[in-house]
């Protein structure tokens, strides 16, 4: 670890940690929301990268685990009065166990078959949750608002998401540089070769899937409290998973910093388009164009392509 490599990220972290102090001087709730939203997606993209980037399983259904985490926390908040912040771990655990079970079934197949199974998961869960009276069915659950003044009401979510984003980035880095990650990367490219080397292919894949689900589920708890209202059609739509996949591919899947770069660029671009063109269909068109143009010049994503050409800045080169 050289000093210059981590200086920029550490400075950025310091600034992000201190930023909410501007609320003492002026109301920057919108920017706090944007940052918080970026942290939220960094959690999801970094988590997805574990199974999608290193494992090679392109899941278009990972928001299923976000839904599980959100509903665990949301239900407990309404039924037992427990703040979702205390349930981050439990939400993650339930999502992780659910991910483990789903992984045992769906990870038997690869490629297009796996993608279809991940879409099927979303569709099945949508039907189940829409008709599940215990969690409010299609009408969903309304969570209590926090009692903080408007100026400070976002801060618990801001710092929770920041913490979870750091955890997700660290886990992403750890997996990449561990023997577990080595096994996962080998499995993604040649399962037979990996098995012959003694790697327990099934357990590696399923554990990676569960780990990814755990992090996203944890974020779901905080997201539920932030939204204060959760219902199936807010989570169980393919667009959320598609956004995750796009962000990771844009930044560079299979890298540590790729998901972060992709998320920041995607959200920033979206904001610029909204500012100049409003919330129109042009937004979708231009986002698609962004992806196409980026992949033309950066076929392995921005971080991946720069790394391949040996011109990746040190502060983005974490593996």
């Amino acid at each position: 670890m050289t000093n210059s490599k981590y200086l920029v990220p550490l400075l950025a972290l310091l600034m992000l940690t201190m930023f909410p102090l501007v609320q003492f001087f002026s109301n920057q709730n919108y920017i706090i929301h944007l940052l918080l939203y970026a942290f939220f997606y960094i959690i999801m993209t970094s988590s997805w990268n574990i199974i999608g980037g290193y494992g090679g399983f392109i899941s278009i259904g990972h928001n299923a685990f976000l839904c599980v985490g959100a509903y665990v926390a949301g239900y407990a908040a309404v039924r037992y009065g427990i703040s979702p912040f205390y349930l981050i771990g439990l939400s993650g655990l339930v999502a992780g166990i659910f991910g483990f079970i789903v992984g045992l079934i769906t990870l038997r197949v690869k490629g297009p078959s796996f993608i279809i199974s991940s879409i099927a998961l979303i569709m099945i869960m949508r039907i189940v949750f829409d008709h599940w009276d215990l969690v409010g069915g299609a009408s969903g659950i309304t969570l209590p608002f926090n009692s903080l003044p408007v100026q400070w009401s976002k801060l618990p979510h801001y710092y929770s998401f920041l913490f979870l984003a750091l955890a997700a980035i660290y886990l992403n880095w750890y997996v990449r540089h561990s023997k577990f990650g080595l096994a996962l990367r080998a499995v993604s490219h040649d399962e037979t070769r990996s098995a012959v080397a003694g790697i327990n292919v099934k357990m590696i894949k399923v554990t990676a899937f569960a780990l990814s689900a755990f992090l996203i589920g944890s974020a779901g708890a905080v997201w539920a409290d932030y939204l204060t209202y959760i219902r199936p059609n807010m989570f169980l739509v393919i667009l959320i998973a598609a956004n995750i996949v796009l962000m990771v591919i844009l930044g560079g899947k299979g890298t540590v910093t790729g998901p972060i770069v992709g998320t920041v660029i995607f959200i920033l671009f979206n904001e610029i388009i909204l500012t100049f063109f409003g919330a129109t269909e042009l937004n979708i068109l231009l986002t698609g164009l962004l992806l196409v143009i980026t992949l033309l010049y950066f076929p392995d994503g921005i971080v991946g392509s720069l790394k391949n050409k040996n011109i990746l800045p040190k502060f983005l080169d974490w593996g």
Partner: peptide
């Protein structure tokens, strides 16, 4: 070369 060191679980 060290792939086998990631064997087992």
């Amino acid at each position: 070369l060290v792939l086998h060191t990631a064997s087992g679980f």
